[in-house]
Computed example of a mutant assay.
Amino acid sequence: MRIVAALGGNALLRRGEPLEASVQIGHVREAVRGLAAAATGNELVITHGNGPQVGLLAVESASDPALSTPYPLDALGAQTQGMIGYWLARELRRALPGREVVAVLTETIVAPDDPAFANPTKFVGRAYPAPEAARMRAEHGWALRRDGSAWRRVVPSPEPRDIVELATITRLVDDGCMVIAAGGGGVPVGPDHQGVEAVVDKDLTAALLAARLKADTLLLLTDVPAVMRDHGTVNASPIAEITPHRLRDLDLPDGSMGPKAEAACRFAEQRRGAVAVIGSLTDVPALLSGTAGTRIEAP
């Protein structure tokens, strides 16, 4: 079976934790225990988030007096792909001796006329009080949006249109390699391969990658056991199976489960007969056997 496993942000960092390398490496080791179960007897491609890491580097770059301009987001995305890919590959080799593992620096093509460029919505980096936010806007031309009582930078999040290294990733998987690819949604580039100042949603890129690889299963791994009906109420209950149409009707929040649900729907609709599963990183064997998580299949 060919599986694409998309690691949520909790795989590397949990809310409130410091962005220390040691903390993230500890979580990578926990994640690899689940991934090792998916890799046994299967072809496995792994994607991952990089939001906190890109945010940290963006803030550091903007604050560095030695730089006349901060590093662009495409370069920061590439940096974090390399770092996280290295951590995952190292721990997978330790967990699965003899398996070939490779991390592929991946570019994701976006359309220059994507409406997202006129409406930046993706939060990047830390929160600023109003005076500092005004200064950052003036100095760097950032778009900022209120987040609670403070302000944060927002950047465009255009649709993933294609994956530049798809043919290479396919050959590696066909050859028996375990591949780490499209980290953070991939480095956003235009059709001319010029990097753009944006962040691509990691789950939507994972769905695109899974469909193009003709995967049998897309695992969207997070810190909750399933998609919940009536989430946040006393009547909340896990959903075991659902169609894309009914899942979209739930109107899940954009900042958490919404993108995962949309990614699952797109994959299930494009790969009829395949299944997308949303569930906990600690439940991988049960997710694959159909005894845990939420399974999304098109009728």
Rank of each mutant, 00 (worst) to 15 (best):
A206H: 04
V227Q: 11
A226Q: 02
G232E: 10
K202L: 09
R229I: 10
A210H: 05
A236V: 02
R212C: 02
D230S: 09
R212N: 08
Q194W: 11
A198E: 05
A210Y: 12
A215P: 00
V234C: 06
T243M: 05
A236K: 04
T233E: 03
A211D: 08
H245A: 15
T222M: 13
L219M: 12
L221V: 00
A240F: 06
L213D: 06
R229M: 14
A226P: 05
V234Q: 14
V224K: 07
V224F: 05
L220F: 13
L208G: 10
P225E: 11
V200S: 04
E197C: 07
R229P: 01
P244E: 02
E197L: 12
L208E: 12
P244W: 01
K214N: 14
E197P: 00
L209K: 08
D230P: 06
Q194N: 13
D216H: 15
L204D: 06
L213A: 03
G195Y: 02
L220A: 07
A207Q: 09
A198L: 07
V196K: 10
L218W: 00
A207D: 09
S237E: 14
R212V: 06
V199L: 03
A198W: 00
R212L: 07
Q194V: 13
A215R: 02
L218S: 00
A226C: 01
A198V: 04
D216S: 15
G232A: 13
S237M: 10
V224I: 14
D230R: 12
L218E: 00
E241Q: 09
D216N: 15
H245M: 13
K214V: 05
E197M: 12
E197R: 14
D201G: 05
L208R: 15
D216C: 13
D230H: 12
L218R: 01
V199P: 00
D216K: 15
L204V: 01
G195V: 12
T222G: 10
L209C: 08
A206S: 15
A198H: 01
L218Y: 02
A215W: 02
L208P: 01
M228A: 07
V199Y: 04
V227S: 08
L204W: 05
G232D: 07
V200I: 12
H231E: 13
K202T: 04
L204Q: 10
T233W: 06
R212K: 12
H245W: 04
V234M: 11
T205P: 00
L213I: 02
L220D: 03
V227P: 05
P238L: 14
V224Q: 09
A210G: 03
V199Q: 04
K214I: 01
T217K: 09
A207N: 09
V200F: 01
D203Y: 05
A206C: 08
T233S: 14
T243K: 03
L213Y: 08
V196R: 13
A215G: 04
A240L: 09
L208S: 10
L208W: 08
V200C: 06
V234D: 15
